[in-house]
Nucleic acid binder design. Structure first.
Length: 465
RNA sequence: GGCGCGGUAGCCAAGUGGUAAGGCGGAGGUCUGCAAAACCUCUAUGCACCGGUUCGAAUCCGGUCCGCGCCUCCA
């Protein structure tokens, strides 16, 4: 069986093939840049990164677009409260976002279009919708999409809107809509918008939330593309609305595969500021956890499963990574100077298990299981002296190859400078002379300089404390 | 009310008909000047509960209990 994904549109696991052989076009809903993203947001970005990396691992060329929503109610409000222009306000959070995804070792997308840079494209799309009769202008100059005109509305979310009543959540300022379920394509300017606004044929205003994703995805990926992702909360209304407005405008199928990741909860409860369990990436870094530890934690639960984030699991992530690091170090030593030979069977088995699991809707738990099986089997083989340098090198290469998907191995170990190396050498000398007090003193000195040293059968091992 | 998700060891978490992956933690062991680490071994007669189908069920069917999400701008 080949690669397959659970498609929200069909509610089934469907075999995946891109429209253009060998090339996957992927749109991933990105951040609204009005504050520091929280770890729940990053769960989605890490999932999307895993998807992207696995597609590349399978040999596809990937063109990924991630939007930056830099104009909406929250960004406008935030800018006003900060006394900044919209651009100055959002720029700081865009910068922060890029720093944060880098910390998490998330590969950059090919395109990061900002909504404010694509107003003309959105207006163009709106004009098509007006011309085709899917959109109407209300008295104040806002434009709404008429869901009555689009019979397939509700297909993605499996919602039957005939029973939908105008409830408390329908804002009173939307009384101008013909139907409570119609959604805004364009919002007429009002004074709260301040300087924010663009001229359109139907008056000054700003785009509705959904239209940016339609306009920008189609600009960079075409009118029909392969995969669109986001959090489950985006299924309705955001993605439902995207489908409606896109397909109404083009008359073509918009997206073939919709993949949605489940939410993250903290200590079994929904993350919220009032519960005090609301964390940004920076909060966790400030507590001494590294980007890769957080990446592991966010990645290690299947994306359609709720992820219960706890500090215990972060600690477990750290220990699991230590095990991987240690194994890699061991392979490194065993393979020194060797050219890769034939893959040992324990590597072949692990690699096959890894691929089979990932092919199955990115079953990361199965994939990590296969990887840890390899660690275990590899350690046993090396203990038994059954692994020569060529085999170790082959294992190392396979490990690195799987890590193209996982992105967990550290690229560069902190290397000790000559002074540190000198201390280690002096300590080895003292140990050789059985001068234990001096050896212990040197170990303490190294610790004071930020290095722990452990004596292993393969010599002293330095690690940044 | 409608649509949907989930309940597997102390914790996290795979497994959707063939006899319970993996990680963390814990226990024991090997190694060791000490320390630490590492590695090895062990760690669920049972998968919320009750029935049913089947040679066989965590997996399928029916029912019950519990937790949770969405139902108009929250990843």
């Amino acid at each position: 069986m080949g690669l397959r994904f659970y498609n929200t549109l069909t509610r089934k696991v469907d075999p995946f093939e891109p429209l253009e052989p060998g090339h996957v076009r992927l749109y991933t809903c990105g951040p609204t840049v009005y504050n520091a993203a929280h770890i729940g947001n990053f769960r989605a970005y890490v999932f999307e990164d895993l998807l992207r990396r696995y597609l590349k691992f399978k040999g596809f060329r990937v063109t990924q677009v991630m939007n930056l929503t830099d104009v909406d109610d929250k960004t406008i409000k935030g800018a006003r409260e900060a006394g900044l222009s919209l651009n100055d306000f959002t720029r700081q959070f865009k910068d922060m976002f890029f720093e944060d995804v880098k910390t998490l070792n998330v590969e950059p997308a090919e395109h990061y279009p900002a909504a404010t840079d694509h107003i003309p494209e959105m207006i163009g799309l709106l004009e098509q919708l007006m011309k085709k009769g899917f959109a109407y202008r209300s008295e104040d100059g806002s434009i709404y999409f008429s869901i009555k005109k689009f019979p397939a509305y509700g297909r993605l979310a499996h919602l039957d809107l005939s029973g939908l009543k105008a409830g408390a959540r329908v804002a009173q300022d939307e009384y101008e809509k013909e139907n409570a379920a119609d959604f805004a394509l364009w919002k007429a300017w009002d004074e709260k918008d301040g300087e924010v606004g663009w001229e359109a044929p139907w008056g000054r205003g700003r785009p509705g939330w959904h239209i940016e994703c339609s306009a920008m995805s189609m600009k960079y990926l075409g009118e029909s593309f392969d995969i669109h992702t986001g959090g489950v909360d985006n299924i309705f209304p955001h993605h439902e609305d995207e489908i409606a407005q896109s397909e109404a405008a083009t008359g073509k199928p918009f997206v073939r595969f919709w993949l949605h990741c489940a939410h993250l909860i903290v200590d079994g409860r929904k993350m919220s500021k009032s519960l005090g369990n609301f964390y940004t990436l920076r909060d966790l870094l400030g507590r001494g956890y590294s980007g890769r530890e957080i990446r592991y934690e966010l990645m290690a639960t299947h994306y359609r499963q709720w992820l219960n984030f706890t500090f215990d699991s972060l600690q477990a992530a750290r220990a699991a990574l230590d095990r991987l690091d240690e194994f890699r170090r061991r392979l490194d030593l065993a393979s020194a100077g060797s050219v890769a030979g034939r893959m040992p069977s324990w590597v072949e088995v692990a690699r096959a298990g890894f691929v089979a699991a990932m092919d199955d809707d990115l079953n990361i738990s199965g994939a990590l299981g296969a990887l840890f099986d390899m660690v275990h089997a590899g350690n046993k083989a090396m203990d038994a002296g059954e692994t020569d340098g060529a085999a170790a090198r082959a294992a190392l290469d396979a490990f690195a190859d799987m890590d193209r998907v996982l992105g967990l191995l550290q690229s560069a170990q902190g290397t000790a400078d000559a002074a540190i190396q000198g201390l280690v050498a002096r300590r080895q000398q003292a140990r050789a002379e059985k001068n234990w007090p001096e050896a212990d003193r040197l170990r303490k000195e190294l610790l004071a300089l930020g290095w722990t040293v452990k004596d292993t059968p393969r010599g002293p091992q330095l690690k940044k404390a």
